[in-house]
């Protein structure tokens, strides 16, 4: 064994040749795994953010387009500046009289019952189903969103359910006194419900504060008996 040192060098070269490809492969696989994991976690986060924006987990499922519209309106409502604060003392009387006469709103109604009593009338006038309406009422009860309340009040008004429309419009006026449309629905509902004097009183108070031309026109129509 004269060339043992050279033989040892050849052995080192052999080992290097043997293990370098394995080491490189291991590094590449590790990098690929890390990149894959990072990419997956990013995608999951994005999906989670999108889901949060669209719908809350505990809420029942409603059509996406509908929910998006409502959410957008709610967001606008949150940022609206509070300008007008009318005296609500006269409203207390109306509210109490309304509560005595009207049946309290059913927050959760059995679906089957709604189907039997209201299904046909609702589908005639709007695209909203009873289930969606029930969902909206529940959401309004939880969120106290003025926009959502106004939507429900308008829905009832269109369907000639004036007690319900007056009730929701009143709630909206309490939540946000600056919504003219809500005041108009409230006065109109009262008038339609035979409470003409109350409607006139409400409109006069509102006109004093806002000088609204729409409210003035409505007031004149009610007084002259043109509003039917």
């Amino acid at each position: 064994m004269h060339n043992l040192e050279q033989l040892e060098k050849r052995w080192f070269i052999y080992k290097a040749k043997k293990y370098i490809p394995i080491a490189l492969l291991t590094v590449l696989v590790t990098i690929a795994l890390i990149v894959t994991l990072l990419f997956k976690s990013d995608v999951k986060k994005e999906l989670a953010v999108k889901k949060d924006n669209i719908i809350k987990k505990d809420e029942p499922i409603v059509p996406v387009s509908f929910v998006e519209n409502v959410v957008i309106k709610e967001k606008r409502e949150e940022y609206a500046p509070l300008v007008l604060q009318p005296s609500m003392s006269f409203m207390e009387k109306i509210k109490s009289s309304e509560q005595e006469k009207t049946v309290p709103v059913k927050k959760v109604q059995p679906v089957e019952k709604i189907k039997i009593t209201k299904a046909k009338s609702v589908t005639k006038h709007t695209k909203i189903t009873e289930y969606e309406l029930l969902t909206l009422e529940n959401r309004f009860a939880k969120s106290s969103s003025a926009t959502l309340g106004l939507f429900i009040a308008k829905y009832y008004y269109k369907n000639k359910e004036y007690k319900n429309s007056a009730e929701y419009a009143l709630k909206v006026n309490e939540l946000n006194p600056n919504l003219e449309e809500s005041w108009m629905i409230f006065a109109s509902s009262l008038a339609k419900n035979g409470k003409k004097d109350d409607a006139i009183q409400v409109l006069k108070k509102y006109i004093d504060k806002t000088h609204s031309s729409n409210a003035t026109t409505l007031l004149k129509d009610i007084i002259k008996g043109k509003f039917k």
Partner: peptide, 16 residues
């Protein structure tokens, strides 16, 4: 094992 591999290189069983 190192010496076995060195012997294998020496006798030509491993091409290193």
């Amino acid at each position: 094992h190192k010496y076995i591999e060195m012997a294998a290189i020496d006798v030509g069983f491993i091409n290193a």
